[in-house]
Every structure is written in structure tokens, then in C-alpha cells.
Simulated assay, not measured.
Amino acid sequence: MAIQSINPYLILGGRTDDALAFYHDALGAEVIALNRFGDVDGSCPEAMRERVMHAELQLGAARIMLSDGPADAPTAGGAVSIAVRFDDAAQIRRGFERLSVDGTVIQPLFDSPWGTLFGVVVDRFGVSWMLDCTKT
């Protein structure tokens, strides 16, 4: 059996709708799947009906999955970053700037010694992003 893909799955504790709009604006991500708990389980508690059970974002050739998770889902995890490679310097600058809004810049974009424009930002949802773009 061969692994076909590995996708980050973000559990956002009730903030998935905001994250979907934010990542669309920041990175041009497109929602390709969205299911709410109430769509799938008619017997779920009223407070859970509008929470996102599963969503998928398409970012270029990559996918990120997201969920609000159950009401008591822990939202903290290990040290994980989503690494994104761009092919356009203007696009990386735009994405970095937008991800930084209400977030924390860990490493401002800079001309790295390994030949890329590189930066790290933790967005307002606590997701760490490592962005780079080959310098041309």
C-alpha cells in the first residue's frame, strides 16, 4: 500500500468559518468541501449544528483540511508549520502581509542564504506558516 497524500488538518475550535474567509483573502484558497455537523447528523445538539465538521481548501496543488472539532476538542498541538513555496515575489509578499494581520511575525521576509525570499508568521488562528519563494 502506498501513501497517496498527506494533508494538514487544522482543528480550530469554532473559528473555521473565519479561517476559511481569511485564507481565501490571504492566499487565494478556494473552499472545495464544507460540511456542518447539522448537515450530517440531524440529532446533534442545537449548539453544534452550524459548527464546521469538515472543510477542505485548495491552495494551488495542495489541500488543507479544517474543522471546528467537537465542543470540547483541544486546539493545541505540537510544533508544526505549514510550508508554502511561491513562484512569484509579489504573491509571497501579499500572502505574508495578509497572514500577519492580527498575527505574529516570527521571521520577517528576507533574502535567505539558501537562495529564497523567506519568512515565518503565526496567523491569528495560531497556525504557523513558513513562506518562501525562489529568487529570480
Rank of each mutant, 00 (worst) to 15 (best):
M1G: 14
Q4H: 11
S5G: 08
I6H: 08
P8Q: 10
Y9F: 12
L10F: 02
L10E: 05
L10H: 08
L10I: 03
I11V: 15
L12N: 07
G13D: 14
G14F: 00
D17A: 05
F22D: 07
F22C: 14
H24S: 13
D25F: 02
D25R: 06
L27E: 07
G28M: 12
V31G: 01
I32T: 13
I32G: 02
A33G: 08
A33H: 10
A33D: 12
R36S: 00
G38C: 10
G38E: 02
D39T: 00
G42K: 04
S43N: 13
E46Y: 01
R49Y: 11
E50N: 05
R51I: 04
V52F: 14
V52L: 13
M53Q: 03
H54R: 08
L57D: 07
G60V: 14
A61W: 02
D68P: 15
G69L: 04
G69K: 01
D72W: 01
T75F: 06
A76N: 11
G77M: 05
G77Y: 13
A79E: 13
V80P: 06
V80D: 05
V80L: 13
I82T: 12
F86C: 08
A90H: 08
I92V: 14
R93Y: 09
E97M: 07
L99V: 11
S100K: 12
D102H: 10
G103A: 05
V105C: 02
I106C: 02
I106K: 15
P108D: 06
D111K: 05
W114A: 04
L117I: 05
G119A: 04
G119N: 10
V120A: 09
V120P: 12
D123F: 00
D123C: 04
R124W: 03
F125G: 05
G126T: 06
G126L: 01
S128R: 04
T136A: 15
T136W: 09
